[in-house]
Amino acid sequence: MDDTHQTDDAQTRLWNGPAGRAWVDSQALLDAMFTPFEDLLVEAVSVGSAARVLDVGCGTGSTTLAVARRLGAKGHCVGIDISEPMIAAARARAEREGTPASFIRANAQGHAFEPASFDLIVSRFGVMFFDDPVRAFANLRRAASPDAGLQFIAWRSAAENPFMTTAERAAAPLLPNLPARRPDAPGQFAFADRGRVSSLLEESGWADIELQPIDVVCTLPEKELVRYLTRLGPVGLLLQEADVRTRAQVIETVRAAFEPYVHGAEVRYTAACWKVSARAGT
């Protein structure tokens, strides 16, 4: 299903362009790195009470498919994302696996979900990109059945996640066009502030809101590190258009900056996140 009325905003353009394609190309690497978060969300699925699950910002579908496998024939999981390349990859994965999940290419902020159609709404790093979070969570609240749960994982602050900004800090002198991160703007660290997240959810109709700080060790193979830093994030996007000399300089400089995280054949870092839960208010 495609939503032809979605807003052509910056996030839509980004995730339907180079960022979306980079995530598809790096699907296996990212899914392996973020498996601990996927496992936390799958654990929240109670097969008896959550027959209909929505995965927001589902990307290439790993969490959607994991939830669908847990539900089995007793339920159904739907993934939604604004990225056409990622949704296409998710649909292809579901078909290959024979897993009965379904996917919607749309902006969850304004998509016309059937009211009260989901018993649980989950997201792994997919809800920080709305340009109007209150509108988005209110829309999701309308899609939630009475007493439905909301469970999502979001990053805490950039200061608490130095691994995630290492490439930008190291490359900044070499890439003058590198965009600065704007606090509270749609993006990776938009939900850093606990109070802001609670207020957004409360204002949009959610109740019993809880934010639990979690610190999770994530890993990736050292042999994949250069591919990771040259494909993903702000630096990766700029490198896709950089000249050969600049690209070589940036890769050398940035790779050296990641050395503290390299432990033999493994890159290891701690991801500082929120595990957020809420209940559809009456």
Rank of each mutant, 00 (worst) to 15 (best):
Ser49Cys: 01
Arg69Lys: 14
Trp15Leu: 02
Met86Gly: 12
Trp155Asp: 11
Ala22Ser: 15
Ser26Trp: 01
Gly281Glu: 04
Ser62Thr: 15
Thr12Leu: 12
Pro183Leu: 11
Gln240Trp: 00
Asp2His: 10
Gln188Ile: 03
Leu220Cys: 13
Ala180Gln: 13
Phe118Ser: 11
Ala10Arg: 12
Phe137Glu: 05
Ala108Asn: 08
Pro85Gln: 09
Ala50His: 15
Arg69Gln: 15
Ala207Met: 02
Asn16Thr: 04
Arg105Tyr: 06
Ala271Arg: 04
Val276Tyr: 01
Arg255Asn: 14
Asp55Trp: 03
Leu220Lys: 10
Ile214Gln: 15
Gly98Arg: 12
Arg247Val: 00
Ala94Trp: 05
Phe191Thr: 09
Pro173Trp: 06
Ala185Cys: 07
Gly61Tyr: 14
Ala148Asn: 02
Pro36Ala: 08
Gln11Met: 14
Ala159Cys: 04
Leu30Ser: 11
Asp31Phe: 07
Met1Thr: 06
Asn107Lys: 11
Arg196Phe: 01
Phe152Glu: 06
Asp8Arg: 12
Val42Leu: 03
Phe163Arg: 10
Ala112Ile: 05
Ile121Lys: 02
Gly72Arg: 07
Ala257Pro: 06
Ala66Leu: 12
Ala19Leu: 03
Thr246Glu: 09
Trp155Tyr: 14
Arg70Ala: 13
Pro183Cys: 03
Leu150Ser: 03
Ala154Gly: 13
Val122Pro: 04
Val78Ala: 00
Phe152Trp: 15
Gln240Phe: 00
Asp132Asn: 10
Val53Met: 01
Ala92Pro: 05
Leu237Gln: 13
Ser26Cys: 12
Arg91Trp: 12
Arg91Pro: 10
Val244Lys: 08
Ala19Gly: 01
Leu140Asp: 04
Arg13Pro: 02
Pro234Tyr: 05
Ser123Pro: 06
Thr246Cys: 06
Pro221Gly: 07
Thr35His: 07
Glu259Pro: 05
Ser83Met: 10
Ala172Ile: 02
Asp243Gly: 08
Glu222Ser: 15
Gly236Pro: 07
Asp119Tyr: 04
Ser26Glu: 13
Gly17Ala: 09
Val197Gln: 03
Thr60Ile: 05
Thr64Ala: 06
Val78Asp: 00
